[in-house]
Design a protein around this nucleic acid. Structure first.
Lengths: 168, 168
DNA sequence: ACTAATTTTCAGTAAATTTTGAAAATTCAA
DNA sequence: TTGAATTTTCAAAATTTACTGAAAATTAGT
């Protein structure tokens, strides 16, 4: 397989993969392109490589920067703005976990703890099932939350090394 | 807050939550409804409670069954078919992890290992960056894969208990 | 301060996904 | 075996989400 072919394949698959994880296809493709680019590239480079509009590139690069996955880079002597992706995959994963936790898990846990406080007779079957379910999900979510906090703070080799050894 | 209000809130939020995880809104809502239903319910019950069409209920319950999150239940003396959700949240999470691993992670790892085999000069900057990136992602994915296997096999209390103690 | 290069915005359009509903298929009791 | 009850299918419609492109805003060199 040739490099150009493999690149296309990688970008396309990474895009499809992204859609299963709540990330839009184009954003994931831009991220993939940046991951395999040894040097920072411009909006125009991205437009050209992925055949998408300037507006689209602009919006999605902005999102990638907001997610902390991509940096704007200023190159001395260049008028244009360049983009560069964090290449350390552990940092990428950590950053994604951190953001999703903040954007999704934390608000969900907050909501669940409110829903537990409904007024109603616990002897009523429906009420009981509701409270039990919400409590169980909240408890589980709380544990996941703690676990993710540890992961976010942990150093790569220490964390994976220890975890794998622990479970061997 | 009243039970009916809390139920509506829970179903709606669970649906919104689902969309961030590549699950469609209705499927997640049906799942939520089943989670808080103490007894199995029918297609018609779901149609009525969520105000959606028969076809929609049918397709999404089928998907939920495929995902292993919901069971078809036969109630003696009843003509209609009933649905019931697995209520143990740990089992739900495990099942989701298992399915997503199978549907997404495993194929991605397979693809990555093929992409590493491109022919080209490793001294070329682009080629080197491509190979390095793909290799790093594959390595990371492989570790995640192993970790998830352990989680899937692990017993709830043992796993979470041990893990949390370990990281305390 | 002017102006050319570049980036950003966003209304309109296009594409993708989800939902409907009615017809077809299936099931099962009599 | 019939037919009423129930489930399934799927083409078309509705909805949601993503993309374009040109105008507006911003930036930076002279």
């Amino acid at each position: 397989m040739k490099l150009s072919e493999a690149k296309a394949q990688f970008i396309s698959s990474w895009g499809a993969f992204g859609t299963h994880w709540g990330i839009n296809r184009t954003m994931a493709q831009i991220h993939a392109l940046l991951l395999i680019s040894p040097d920072p590239i411009t909006q125009d480079d991205i437009m050209e490589q992925l055949n998408i509009s300037r507006g689209n590139v602009n919006m999605n690069t902005r999102d990638l920067v907001d997610w902390g996955l991509v940096d704007r880079v200023l190159i001395p002597g260049e008028r244009k703005e360049f983009f560069s992706a964090e290449k350390d995959i552990w940092k990428v994963a950590t950053q994604i976990i951190k953001e999703r936790k903040k954007r999704e898990l934390d608000p969900m846990l907050k909501l669940l703890s409110q829903l537990e406080k409904i007024d109603g007779d616990k002897k009523d079957k429906d009420t009981k099932q509701f409270i039990d379910t919400v409590a169980a999900i909240r408890k589980f979510g709380g544990q996941a939350d703690k676990m993710l906090d540890v992961m976010i703070k942990a150093d790569e080799s220490w964390f994976l090394g220890s975890l794998l050894k622990f479970f061997k």
